[in-house]
Simulated assay, not measured.
Amino acid sequence: MEIQLVRHATLRVTYANRTLLVDPMLSRAGELAATPNTPNQRPNPLVELPVPAESVIAGIDAVLVTHIHRDHFDQAAADLLPKEIPVFCQPQDRERLTECGFLNVTPVADEIVWEGIRLGRTGGRHGTGDIGEKMGPVSGFVLRAEGEPCLYLAGDTIWCEEVERAAADHRPEVAVVFAGAAQFVTGGPITMTAEDVVCLAGACPSARIVVAHMEAWNHCLLSRSELRAHLRERELDGRVLVPEDGEVMRFDKTLP
Rank of each mutant, 00 (worst) to 15 (best):
L32F: 11
G238Y: 14
R224I: 09
R42Y: 15
C100T: 13
E195I: 14
V113L: 08
V240K: 04
E235F: 15
Q183K: 15
Q92T: 15
L49N: 01
R118W: 11
V210I: 12
P256Q: 15
L222T: 00
V163M: 08
P137R: 12
E164A: 11
S139V: 07
C150N: 06
V197G: 00
P205R: 08
V138R: 03
R250G: 09
V56S: 00
G187V: 01
V185D: 15
R239D: 06
T122V: 08
A34T: 06
G147W: 05
V197S: 02
P243R: 08
R121K: 09
A58Q: 10
A229Y: 13
E111R: 09
L80W: 05
P24F: 01
P243L: 08
L20F: 03
D169R: 13
A62V: 03
V6M: 03
T19K: 00
E161S: 08
L20V: 01
G238M: 14
R125K: 12
K134R: 15
R121I: 02
R28E: 14
V6N: 02
T128W: 06
G59D: 04
G136A: 13
H230K: 14
E2V: 03
V177K: 00
D252I: 14
E2C: 07
D110I: 12
I117P: 00
G202Y: 11
G127R: 02
A166D: 00
L236S: 00
W114D: 02
C150Q: 10
D110N: 13
T38Q: 04
G147L: 06
S223G: 13
R171F: 10
M25F: 11
C89D: 03
A167F: 03
H170I: 05
G246F: 04
G132M: 07
D71Y: 09
A16C: 08
K253P: 03
A34R: 07
E215M: 13
T14N: 01
G59F: 02
A76W: 00
C89S: 08
A175P: 04
R144D: 07
L221V: 12
V56L: 00
A167P: 04
E162H: 09
T10D: 01
V6R: 02
R144G: 06
E111Y: 11
P91S: 07
R118E: 11
Q90S: 10
M192N: 05
F141L: 04
V185W: 14
V47E: 05
N40R: 15
I158P: 01
E233N: 13
T122F: 06
T254K: 14
P36V: 08
A175K: 01
F141N: 01
